[in-house]
Computed example of a mutant assay.
Amino acid sequence: MNKQCVILAAGKNSRLDTGKPKSLLEINGKSLLERHIEAFHHNGCNEFCVVTGHNPGPIIEKLAELKEKYPVTIDTVHNDRYDLENGFSVSVAEHWLRAHHSDGFYLTMGDHVFGQGFIPAFDAAMVSDNISQHLCLAVDVPSDLNDHIDIDDVTRVLVNERGHIMMIGKMIAQYNRYDTGLFFMKPAVFETLRACFEKQKYTISDMVSQLILDRQAITVDVVGCVWNDVDNPDDLRNSLNLNF
Rank of each mutant, 00 (worst) to 15 (best):
M1W: 12
Q4T: 13
A10P: 07
A10C: 04
N13W: 05
S14Q: 07
S14E: 06
L16M: 00
D17K: 00
K20R: 10
N28P: 06
L32E: 01
H36Y: 03
E38T: 13
A39Q: 03
F40H: 09
H41F: 15
H41D: 12
H41Q: 15
H42M: 03
G44V: 03
C45I: 13
C45F: 08
E47A: 02
F48R: 01
C49A: 15
C49P: 15
V50R: 02
T52L: 04
G53N: 03
H54N: 13
P56Q: 06
G57H: 12
P58I: 07
I59A: 14
E61Y: 10
E61T: 07
L63G: 12
A64E: 12
E65T: 08
Y70S: 13
P71L: 09
P71G: 09
I74E: 13
D83K: 05
L84E: 09
L84P: 10
E85H: 07
N86T: 13
H95S: 14
H95E: 08
W96H: 14
A99W: 07
H100Y: 04
H101R: 15
S102Y: 13
D103K: 11
Y106N: 00
L107V: 01
L107N: 01
D111G: 00
H112K: 14
V113C: 14
F114D: 00
G117T: 02
I119A: 01
P120F: 05
A121H: 07
F122Y: 15
F122H: 07
D123A: 04
M126S: 08
S128R: 11
N130T: 08
S132I: 14
L135D: 06
A138R: 02
V139S: 13
D147H: 05
H148E: 12
D152R: 08
D152W: 04
R156L: 06
N160G: 09
R162H: 08
H164N: 08
M166I: 04
I168R: 15
G169S: 06
M171I: 04
Y175L: 11
N176Y: 11
N176P: 01
N176L: 02
R177N: 11
Y178M: 06
D179A: 11
F184I: 09
A188R: 06
F190C: 05
L193S: 04
L193K: 02
A195D: 14
C196Q: 11
T203F: 10
I204P: 04
V208L: 03
S209V: 14
Q210R: 09
I212F: 13
D214I: 09
I218D: 05
T219N: 00
T219M: 02
G224A: 08
V226S: 13
D231I: 00
D231T: 00
P233M: 08
P233E: 11
R237W: 05
N241R: 15
F244L: 10
F244M: 12
